[in-house]
């Protein structure tokens, strides 16, 4: 397959997967609205920190992570499990499409949804909550948040590779909601007991949130390298778990075309 043709296949798969997700408005609306409504409630309306304790800014970073986590987990975890159960995945495997196009389309879709959530959060934070950052902070925060799509997509991939379509939503929710809470995405991590704070150290969302908080100078003070190493390490672990899951169900065959 020529490079030009390969690019076209990648683009078309991303295009159609995005349209496929858009055709499920309940998914799109919930994934987009969930973090925005939460931020509006906890960051703007119930702003217990006041302007002297810029909780709006703190929560902009953590709800940004929350907004990235949702589409990545649900699109990959639930989407993959459902498509495998319905036979759509098998159908795609019978086509000459490279397997990378399928995954890259899912990542792209998660990225588009993530970027939409981040844009909306930024606008609400800036114009409803009065958050002002330096220009480089806005861009760095957006970059760090969007980079979180990679580890979260691999986590979704690992889930999708192991669970069946019917149970996928429940399993993803079982991971998504507690991880968001324990990582300090809804309320600041320091509110929790030491035991719970230590527990957060194993959660990818905690490390991603700390990187986002580092941009605005509100992190817990651990080194950037620690968070990056943990996230990269977990990404590889999730990939291995996903590969084992696919091997179990006789999943993807890698084509050389």
């Amino acid at each position: 397959m020529t490079v030009n043709r390969r690019i076209r296949v990648y683009l078309l798969e991303a295009h159609y997967q995005f349209i496929d997700v858009l055709r499920e408005p309940l998914f799109s609306i919930s994934v987009l609205a969930f973090p925005l409504v939460f931020y509006l409630f906890f960051g703007v309306i119930l702003n217990f920190g006041g302007t002297s304790m810029p909780m709006q800014t703190y929560m902009l970073a953590t709800y940004g992570v929350f907004g990235i986590l949702g589409p990545a987990l649900f699109n990959f975890g639930v989407g993959l499990a459902t498509e495998r159960d319905t036979g759509m995945l098998l159908l795609k495997q019978t086509t000459p499409m490279p397997v990378g196009a399928y995954f890259s389309a899912k990542v792209t879709t998660a990225l588009i949804f993530g970027a939409t959530v981040v844009s909306a959060l930024f606008l609400i934070a800036a114009y409803a909550a009065g958050v002002a950052l330096f220009r480089w902070q806005w861009f760095a925060l957006a970059g760090v948040l969007l980079a979180g799509v990679v580890p979260f997509c691999t986590l979704g991939l690992a889930i999708g590779a192991w669970v069946k379509g019917r149970s996928a939503v429940a399993i993803v929710n079982l991971i998504f909601l507690p991880m968001s809470m324990l990582s300090g995405l809804w309320i600041p991590i320091y509110v929790f007991s030491d035991f719970m704070q230590n527990m957060a150290l194993v959660l990818p969302a905690y490390h991603h949130a700390q990187l986002a908080l580092k941009v605005i100078g509100m992190d817990s003070g651990q080194p950037i390298l620690l968070h990056v190493i943990v996230l990269v390490g977990q990404t590889f672990i999730f990939l291995i778990v996903a590969a084992l899951g696919f091997r179990r169900v006789g999943g993807f065959s890698i084509r050389k075309s």
Binding site: G49, S52, M53, P54, M55, T57, Y58, P188, I189, Y190, I216, G217, M218, D219, S220, G221
Partner: peptide, 9 residues
């Protein structure tokens, strides 16, 4: 733990 937030304020 609140120190970080207040410092950034």
């Amino acid at each position: 733990a609140l120190g970080a937030i207040k410092r950034s304020a």
